[in-house]
Each structure stands twice: as structure tokens, then as C-alpha cells.
């Protein structure tokens, strides 16, 4: 069925234009059309949080949005956190995860990071309870969450020190 829509979407500060089918999920658009495979796909029905991105600055599940709905909107993905692959250019949130062992296999990590970025901006000094509530919509099969909670605390301190991180997203 020839039923294509042309969409213009700003992702990580760059504008993309693509002709897509309306049934294309936003997560698949990012991964397959734009090659931004940092956004992971776990469950595809809104339960695991791996596909979390920022849509006009707010965390949402990209697997339960259509790519056509992003037309004219602004998206940030995990690729926007670090300036480049050099360890010294990671975002303080990523450094926190690295130093506190907030990840093992890393599958869930992009979703956690994109959930936590706006959370830490709103709650620069969160309590453990607030952190646990904030990540309640993200599943991790490896860490048991304890190290993730520690990583968030560490990252919160680092973000306050650096204010804006080296990456474009902070």
C-alpha cells in the first residue's frame, strides 16, 4: 500500500526528513531510518522503558508512539549525551553509571539515562525514594537496581558540580 507521509523531525539538534508509512513506530524510525540504534527496544508495548527518549524535552516511550506523530517535534536520544566516544567526554550521568556499576549488559541503560536526565534536572538532590519512584518504569534484568540507585546519587553530585555536562543534552 503506497501511503507515505513526509515528516521532518529534529533529532539531537539535527533535522531529518523522511517519507514513512504511518504505522512505523517512533522507536523503529530512530533505529532503522536514522540509524540511531542507541535507543533500545525490549517489549514494544510500553512496559520495559528501554526505548525511552525525550520528546519535546519530556521522557516518553518511543515504542508506543508513531513516527508520523513526531512531525515538527524535537527528540533527544541517548546519542546526544556524550560529546564523543572518549571517556572524558561522557555526560556526568553516564560517568555516574560507569563508576557505580549501574549497568551490566547495558541493554536497559539508554532508557534509564533518558528517564533520569530530566528527572535530575528537576530534582538535583533526590532522595533514594524519589530515585526509586523515578526509575519504576524501567526494567533491568541484571543489576538488581541497587547499583543504579547508587549511580544516580553519584551522578546527581557530578551534575551539580558541572552544572551543564559536556554533552549537548544537559
Amino acid at each position: 500500500m503506497e501511503n507515505l507521509f513526509t515528516v521532518t523531525v529534529t533529532v539531537n539538534g539535527r533535522q531529518y526528513e523522511r517519507a514513512i508509512e504511518p504505522r512505523l513506530l517512533l522507536s523503529d524510525f530512530l533505529r532503522h531510518e536514522l540509524g540511531l540504534t542507541g535507543t533500545h527496544v525490549g517489549c514494544e508495548h510500553g512496559v520495559c522503558g528501554a526505548c525511552t527518549i525525550l520528546f519535546d524535552g519530556q521522557p516518553v516511550r518511543s515504542c508506543i508512539m508513531l513516527a508520523v506523530q513526531a512531525n515538527g517535534h524535537e527528540i533527544q536520544t541517548v546519542e546526544n549525551l556524550a560529546l564523543d566516544a572518549k571517556p572524558e567526554n561522557l555526560h556526568p550521568l553516564q560517568v555516574g553509571f560507569w563508576e557505580a556499576h549501574g549497568l551490566q549488559c547495558g541493554f536497559c541503560t539508554p532508557g534509564f539515562l533518558m528517564t533520569l536526565l530530566p528527572f535530575l534536572e528537576e530534582h538535583p538532590d533526590p532522595s533514594e525514594e524519589e530515585i526509586r519512584e523515578a526509575i519504576s518504569g524501567n526494567l533491568c534484568r541484571c543489576t538488581g537496581y541497587q547499583n543504579i540507585v547508587d549511580a544516580v546519587k553519584l551522578a546527581a553530585g557530578k551534575m551539580q558540580e558541572t552544572q551543564a555536562g559536556p554533552g549537548g543534552a544537559a
Binding site: 520528546f55 516518553v60 516511550r61 508512539m65 528517564t115 519504576s136 518504569g137
Partner: peptide, 8 residues
């Protein structure tokens, strides 16, 4: 649900 879902 969770904040990500409440945003939509």
C-alpha cells in the same frame, strides 16, 4: 502508570 506514560 509511570511518568513516561503519563506524559502521553
Amino acid at each position: 502508570a509511570h511518568a513516561q506514560i503519563r506524559n502521553r
